[in-house]
Design a protein around this nucleic acid. Structure first.
Lengths: 135, 135
DNA sequence: CTGTATCCCATCCGATACTG
DNA sequence: CAGTATCGGATGGGATACAG
């Protein structure tokens, strides 16, 4: 019966970068700039925003060491560490089926564009924004 | 090293309703209208869109039974069934820490609004849209 | 080094109406 | 029953510039 609340999981994990950062920080504490480099692809803005959100939810802790260039470390809380295994499992799954999913997408898209009798290949798409990213 | 790809997990699970629907369909096949009722809160549009996306990724199968009112069933594929346990674990985690997280949020928000010396309580917020939902 | 402020476009998603 | 078409508001998220 907990189905109705299943969405709650993703509310806390629903950002583009949350899981990635959580996974990294669960292994060991990292500084801001370290994360910026390790995550790779993330903007400074999104890193800050994501860290804020995770901190707000009590999943990570922000510690400021008053050095001369300030030094800030982010570490996972106990509550977040409980997630570690499931998150890794999820990531492994994604890795394992990476190819299969890409294939499924291509097949689906081919079927979609090949079927219509009287539609040009350059279908402008109505409002049907793909719910997941392309490619 | 698989960190960089961790985001891929959520690409396939990144919708507001994907996990919920996946979890339901993993238990047993459901019809469109059944899902519409069970999920509760989802619009017809989003149900259709989410189902399309999951089907495209090869996570669910759409089967049309040519009855007199048409009957369409959605069921999980083998690949999706592998996710079932981790997803349940995740959902359980969310349920267990529901209260703690809500508390952490309130505490965080209180600290944020109580601290500033010279800022009105009705801060309009610059562009800082919360990365996760409020409440 | 560690962020925050803006601008701004892309996408999400709900409400509503129409169809085979 | 099982969708699709459109409009429109709310966020997400990148680029860039500025600040403690």
């Amino acid at each position: 019966m907990p189905e109705g609340n299943a969405a709650a999981v993703l509310d806390r994990v629903g950002g583009k970068w949350s899981v990635t950062i959580l996974l990294i920080v669960c292994q060991e504490p990292h500084r801001f700039t370290e994360l910026e480099h390790v995550v790779e692809g993330i903007s400074r803005r999104m890193l800050a925003l994501t860290l804020r959100a995770l901190e707000r939810d009590g999943l990570i802790t922000r510690t400021v060491h008053p050095s001369i260039p300030v030094r800030v470390e982010y570490s996972a809380t106990a509550i977040a560490l409980e997630l570690r295994e499931s998150l890794r499992t999820l990531a492994d799954w994604a890795l394992r089926h990476r190819a299969a999913i890409a294939e499924a997408r291509t097949a689906y898209d081919d079927r979609a564009t090949a079927r219509p009798d009287r539609e040009s290949a350059t279908a402008p798409g109505p409002d049907g924004r793909r719910i997941t990213s392309a490619s």
